[in-house]
Write a protein that binds this DNA or RNA. Structure first.
Lengths: 242, 242
DNA sequence: CCAAAAGTGTTATTAATACACCCATGA
DNA sequence: TCATGGGTGTATTAATAACACTTTTGG
């Protein structure tokens, strides 16, 4: 294909010595929704774990663990999520690799993922000890740089909700348009016009109407299904052809 | 802040044993533009390095190196770029962390960055030995998973060109609107309407008109400067408040 | 004067938004 | 029947795109 350009000396990549104590951790920001008593719509919540050992002992931190030598990053994130919530994620995507030198007393590079799980799953499953759910918005003073990480993940969630179909990760297989809209309203923290939302949703081509209805206190609402064949873009570079 | 939810047993994070030979590397996809003899517009090019040792010896690979214990990921990427091109990047952003188990004979997690440098800098600087520039489009059969990585970076470049102002990373301080348009045309591989492009560019509010002109064979074109105070979003989670 | 790129104006099409209104059901 | 959310229609606005046209320079 190409033309050679210039000649000089190439620095040989330095092999890591034994005292290169850089370790790789994987953490996951697990988002879900929870209906708060007074609030007009659900809020974004996530599980945190209390640290039981030295760096930042007693503080809340993202669930995670060391990367096992025999597992991929994705697998490590899934495992983390499984251990923390007992669930498989309905959505899982790499967020960012954090590697500031002073982010931990020892040198740790953290590959952070973010995931979505459905609210009904949260209610149904017993979480391990030392785990509690917090409002993402008001997560502050976490261990390490996890406060920043959570806020960045939250920003990405909101950003992505604008152009992607991730909201389905927070819903069951069948849902009404009002339920879908409520998810977006919860993420974006603002009201959306039901009429316009309906049209946009229908125009997206990703919704399959069923012939079932959600019967409630008023006019029954049609149930839709998400067309998972038309999968969301950017679940990572290796999944689809870009 | 929040309410506790459930109780069970928390798995203690496993400390990495001595045989956890997972090493962290940092690689960088360095994009620039080059005007090809026949082509109607410049093409996206990037520098590759020939591997001089065992895994994939003799094949072309992304420039990179091991993460030093005392440098941040960003710093490692900058250093890589400096060693390969002798330049500081006009744009540098983390792309993705690659960590499949079998992507290398030994276990290596690669934090990959992508960067932009200006074409005139490419011409001016002598690249080290074993380094050559290739068309990004036709980069195939690289070492490791670098082929996929390059294509993903290219996808991200094109994607980001649609909503961001990165194109300025490929231009000098002062430029005409035609030059700016050509950068976008090169990245997106399609013609853009000069009239509409002008209006969009002016409406963006990121261009500062100077009173200087590029005098050429025809009517002089006004030179603009990029307003770097209004910086691009998403240069990473730690830079700005999201 | 002419070629060619700089720069302006005008219109058509499409997408986003606001909001009035009808429909169907449980109570 | 009435309150309420489900669902439709429509008008206004903004963004995008297509393209005709005028301006200014070097040769």
């Amino acid at each position: 294909m190409m033309t050679r350009t210039a000649i000089e000396t190439a620095p040989a990549p330095r092999a890591p010595s034994a005292d290169d104590a850089t370790r790789v951790a994987v953490s996951t920001v697990i988002f879900s929704l929870r209906r708060e008593p007074g609030a007009e719509r659900p809020t974004v919540v996530l599980p945190l774990v209390t640290r039981t050992r030295d760096p930042f002992e007693g503080m809340w931190a993202l669930p995670g663990g060391w990367l096992d030598a025999s597992e991929s990053l994705d697998a490590a994130a899934s495992r983390t999520l499984q251990e923390t919530t007992g669930l498989a994620p309905s959505y899982l995507e790499q967020l960012y690799a954090f590697g500031e030198v002073d982010r931990s007393p020892t040198r740790v590079v953290s590959i952070v993922y973010w995931a979505l799980i459905r609210p009904d799953e949260v209610d149904a499953v017993a979480a391990p000890e030392n785990t509690a759910w917090f409002e993402a918005e008001s997560c502050t003073e976490l261990a390490f740089d996890h406060t920043q990480i959570v806020q960045y993940a939250l920003w990405r969630l909101r950003n992505k909700a604008g152009y992607s179909r991730i909201a389905h990760g927070l819903l069951a297989d069948e849902f009404t348009l009002a339920e879908l809209r409520e998810v977006y309203e919860s993420i974006l923290r603002r009201r959306l016009d039901p009429a316009n939302f309906r049209r946009q949703a229908e125009a997206s081509g990703t919704l399959i109407p069923t012939d079932r209805f959600r019967t409630g206190s008023h006019r029954p609402a049609r149930l839709y299904r998400y067309d998972r064949d038309l999968e969301l873009a950017d679940r990572g570079p290796l999944t689809t052809s870009h």
